[in-house]
């Protein structure tokens, strides 16, 4: 359950993928020598690059980046949110079929048959994404017995510190104490992760039950088809509202990250941002001498790509949120 590295990726910042990404795409840094994989010790690079925001007292220093997500993880997230948006767009008109916009939207897209087709396509994409992830976890955690997958500071499995963090975070909200130091995955990120995990299991199973109803009805009593629709619709509503409100705010729209956190697109965040957002993880890596930083900035095209796609998804999410909330309130 570690998001530290993606499927098939070891902890190798500056690996082939990074080099590949770097080559030829970095107009801003064209002509600079390609750095060797960063060494554990933070390199004191004497590069004469003006540091715009650094206090004048400090020696000028290039912004360094921490690689938070591997290429594989970013692809996985992209597949996940693309399929999720697709499923939401084609599923919510059914959930709120009595709304005027539902039929209009359906007819624009090509009618119910098209909607169902897209919905099933996205469902298959999401299922494959899910299986790739679970397979990767299984391979790394069980077959290779990689450490830290199922427990510890790198793991997505909740631990007592998460409860403590939640408690202290709320105290901070209320001016009752200092902000807790978050690790690699904060409690709300773990909740995001497990909510999706749980949601996919519930929505996926109920969805496939309805898709192959005659088959599943041989295994389950027919009345489970009634239950499947209720589960599917309600859990989907929960997922949509949770993602479009809570996840969007926590990960992108909150003032610290506004308008969006591009790290899920570029994979990198600046050392300063990393240190501020995840002090515990930063300190741990420094202490263990494992803080690998690179001076290679994320390419501009990738950042712009992230901004465009991210804005589009935020917009779709916001529209769906308003439509569904309106339909829900109107009953």
């Amino acid at each position: 359950m570690s998001g530290e590295t993606g499927p098939g990726d070891r902890e190798k910042p500056g690996s082939e993928k990074m080099a590949e990404e770097r080559s030829g795409k970095e107009e801003a840094q064209a002509g600079m020598p390609v750095l060797p994989p960063a060494s554990p010790a933070p390199p004191e690079s004497p590069k004469p690059k003006p540091a715009e925001e650094a206090p004048a007292a400090l020696p000028a220093q290039a912004t360094r980046y921490y690689v938070r997500f591997s290429l594989g993880q970013r692809y996985l997230h992209a597949a996940l949110f693309s399929a999720f948006i697709g499923l939401a767009l084609t599923g919510l008109p059914l959930r709120f079929s009595q709304s005027a916009w539902a039929e209009r939207f359906a007819s624009i897209v090509g009618g119910f048959s098209a909607i169902l087709f897209f919905h099933k396509c996205c469902a298959v994409v999401l299922t494959v994404t899910f299986l790739i992830h679970v397979g990767s976890i299984f391979r790394r955690g069980v077959l290779r017995r990689e450490r830290g997958i199922f427990w510890g500071p790198k793991s997505l499995v909740p631990n007592p510190k998460d409860l403590a963090d939640l408690y202290h975070h709320i105290r901070w909200f209320l001016w009752l104490g200092p902000r807790p130091k978050f690790g690699r995955f904060s409690y709300w990120e773990k909740f995001d992760y497990w909510a999706v995990f749980w949601g996919m299991a519930i929505i996926g199973l109920s969805g496939y039950t309805m898709w192959f109803a005659p088959f599943f009805s041989k295994l389950l009593p027919g009345r489970w088809l009634n239950i499947a629709l209720v589960l599917h619709g309600e859990e989907a509503l929960l997922a949509v509202w949770f993602i479009f409100v809570v996840h969007f705010f926590n990960s992108h729209l909150r003032p610290e990250s506004f308008p969006m956190d591009l790290v899920i697109f570029t994979g990198k965040e600046s050392e300063e941002e990393f240190r501020k957002k995840r002090p515990e993880e930063y300190e741990r890596l420094v202490k263990e001498g494992k803080l690998d930083l690179t001076e290679v900035a994320p390419p501009l095209w990738l950042k712009n790509f992230g901004r465009i796609v991210g804005s589009l998804v935020l917009l779709i999410g916001f529209v769906l949120l308003v439509l569904t909330m309106y339909a829900f309130v109107r009953g």
Partner: peptide, 18 residues
């Protein structure tokens, strides 16, 4: 739905304000 959304909506609002 009520528990999860209620908790996290409140969490979000408090966080935003702070």
């Amino acid at each position: 739905l009520i528990a999860v959304l209620g908790f996290f909506f409140l969490h979000t609002i408090l966080w935003f304000l702070r």
